[in-house]
């Protein structure tokens, strides 16, 4: 097991390097809108294009060979010196440190609620298959899966912010984090993320639990007099948790990679999603690489944690046998 984890950790480093290298290459090959605007401005002020291009690159260290830039970025990444954000004029580490609490503030509760409620409702649906409640839950799940996050976010702002005035129409970062006002303004973004995650959880847990509700060992438990609650929580949930733990990582990635971009842009929350979105749009290489690094780690370490969790949830799973391979 120990060797397995170590190997996976080593693979994590290799995969991270690959992702960062690919990202660096893509950003380097893309046109830089900042350079375009700067050069146009300088030319209109009487400068020449080549001079303007050269000074732009010099000020940003882009006049060095691509290989040198790549090497420095990678060394910086490894030594936690993630460089300087040209579009924010601050160290990248500082930018990330300032942004992540905002994402966590709505992302964590959303993930918690969607996981607990999603699994609970999914199990309920599985044990009450083809009832009115099951249909209602399925309908809700399909609604959550189908509705685009950004559209739902705008509708929430229009209905609850503009029409009813219950929530602010834009995020105010000067509100104390631990305050009712902050909770009020985070409610809508959390709801959007919750809805998109809970639907998947529900459908997946329902499908997984269905495999077990009619299995022999559950029937045996029922024959032995186990209550419905006990059968679900002890005999259905436990084996179902193994595949369900897979979707947890996917959910986390969904929040980090998809929902945070859409939700933060629409609500104007200065979190990791907005940080990454702006970095990509403005081609802030150092910031792009750092914000790509985060979901990469979430994915790789999440998958590792998930594999380890399998062995806890199901003692029959053992990676020890792979060590000899």
């Amino acid at each position: 097991m120990k060797w397995y984890v170590l190997r996976r950790l080593a693979w994590t480093l290799v995969a991270t390097w690959l992702v960062l290298t690919l990202t660096f290459g893509l950003v380097a090959a893309s046109p830089d809108p900042g350079a375009s605007a700067y050069v146009a401005q300088q030319v209109q002020a009487g400068g020449d294009v080549e001079g303007a291009q050269a000074s732009y690159e010099r000020a940003r260290g882009l006049d060095r060979p691509l290989w040198a830039q790549y090497r420095d970025y990678m060394i910086g990444m490894a030594t936690l010196d993630w460089g300087w954000s040209e579009t924010r004029s601050q160290p990248v580490v500082e930018a990330v440190a300032a942004a992540w609490p905002y994402s966590v503030m709505y992302g964590a509760p959303a993930l918690l609620v969607s996981t607990v409620l999603g699994v609970a409702v999914g199990l309920y649906s599985a044990t009450h298959r083809n009832t009115l409640e099951d249909y209602a839950a399925s309908s809700f799940a399909f609604f959550g899966i189908s509705i685009p996050d950004f559209w739902f976010a705008i509708v929430l702002i229009l209905v609850f912010g503009v029409t009813l005035g219950w929530i602010p129409i834009y995020y105010r970062s000067d509100v104390p984090w631990l305050s009712l006002a902050n909770a009020r303004q985070l409610l809508a973004p959390a709801l959007v993320v919750t809805l998109s995650s809970i639907a998947g959880e529900m459908r997946y847990s329902r499908a997984t639990a269905l495999e077990y509700v009619n299995s022999a060992f559950v029937k045996t438990a029922k024959a032995k007099g186990a209550s419905s609650w006990r059968r679900v929580t002890r005999h259905v949930l436990r084996p179902a948790l193994v595949p369900l733990s897979t979707i947890l990582v996917a959910d986390l990635l969904n929040v980090v990679l998809v929902s945070s971009y859409l939700v933060e842009v629409v609500f104007g929350i200065p979190g990791l999603g907005l940080l990454s979105y702006k970095a990509i749009r403005q081609q802030d290489v150092a910031l792009v690489l750092a914000t790509v690094l985060i979901p990469t780690f979430v994915a790789l370490l999440g998958n590792l944690a998930q594999d380890v969790a399998y062995t806890v949830l199901d003692p029959r799973i053992d990676y020890g046998g792979r060590e000899g391979r």
Partner: peptide, 13 residues
Amino acid sequence: GNWAGVVQYASWP
């Protein structure tokens, strides 16, 4: 050679 890469360079020949 605008060693500092400042934006005012074009205004000062």
